[in-house]
């Protein structure tokens, strides 16, 4: 058994002629925070979509706990223990805050349409358990006082927290966060940073895509840098900050802007 919870081997994804991810080898250590950084269009979200099964790989392999999962359909990857958030929160706008998190408990409960229709005892039992666990994740992200509000009525910062709570409610082994800090105030970013530490303390591995460098450097034990679909550097936070190619890519970016 490897200590790597998630690995990619020679992973590539092309959209027609555009190669969004090219021959990526990556190993994610269990129980740690790994960050993936890189300029816009580097292929970070594409990588997440490959891991989550939204896209199928053009070539290469994705291994979860040493098992190839390339052909596992997306909705089954959540039960394996892979959860993710999206660059845009993608909350369920037709539900309350609490219901969004309860929906996240879907795969951790069993009862079906028939038991629900007839209000059978096991439906009630499971439902109260779902409520209990959802409340736990509600409090984890500190949205307890807003549980009955419509999800989309929350300000952006809180929507992003809710998206994390919903993903956490699937009880994952690895959590993929796509730019959780984007659009957040400094204060909110500090709270987010605390939250991610608490998630790690729960024994969950975190893979983080983020543009905010101070946030990344404060959190990540390992950083992987992508540029135009290729890995250009990998290592500890301080090591990455000194890497010439990384500096070049980021300075290049700033000059363009």
């Amino acid at each position: 058994m490897s200590e790597f919870i998630l690995q990619t081997k020679d992973l590539s994804k092309a959209f027609g002629g555009l190669v969004a991810l090219k021959n990526l080898d990556m190993s994610i250590e269990e129980g740690k925070i790994t960050a993936v950084i890189g300029p816009n269009g580097a292929g970070k979200t594409t990588l997440f979509n490959l891991i989550a099964g939204v896209y199928s790989a053009t070539s290469g392999e994705i291994l979860f706990k040493g098992t190839r999962i390339n052909s596992v359909p997306p909705h089954k990857r959540a039960s394996l223990g892979i959860a993710r958030t999206f660059q845009h929160a993608l909350l369920f706008g037709n539900m309350t805050v609490l219901e969004n998190i309860m929906a996240g408990q879907h795969i951790r409960s069993r009862y079906g349409i028939l038991e629900a229709a007839l209000c059978l005892p096991n439906a009630k039992r499971e439902e109260s358990l779902i409520l209990l666990k959802a409340t736990k994740y509600l409090n984890l992200v500190g949205l307890g006082t807003e549980k009955d509000k419509e999800a989309l009525s929350l300000p952006l910062g809180r929507q992003k927290l809710l998206a994390i709570a919903r993903a956490m409610a699937t009880e994952p082994k690895i959590l993929l966060l796509d730019e959780p800090g984007a659009g957040l105030t400094t204060l909110e970013k500090r709270a987010l940073s605390d939250l991610i530490h608490r998630i790690i303390d729960m024994g969950i591995t975190v893979l983080l895509v983020e543009h905010d460098m101070p946030l990344v450097m404060g959190l990540a034990e390992k950083v992987i840098v992508l540029d135009s679909g290729q890995k250009i550097a990998e290592g500890g936070a301080s090591q990455i900050q000194r890497d010439k190619r990384v500096i070049a890519v980021y300075l290049g970016e700033e000059v363009e802007e």
Binding site: V54, A103, Y111, G112, R166
Partner: peptide
Amino acid sequence: NIIRSRTGRALRAIHGSEDAAESIGIN
């Protein structure tokens, strides 16, 4: 009863965002 259940939430989740619904394991 169905609407207030696990199934009901799954249905409304699909309405809300199919991508997000798949990501939490809804078929």
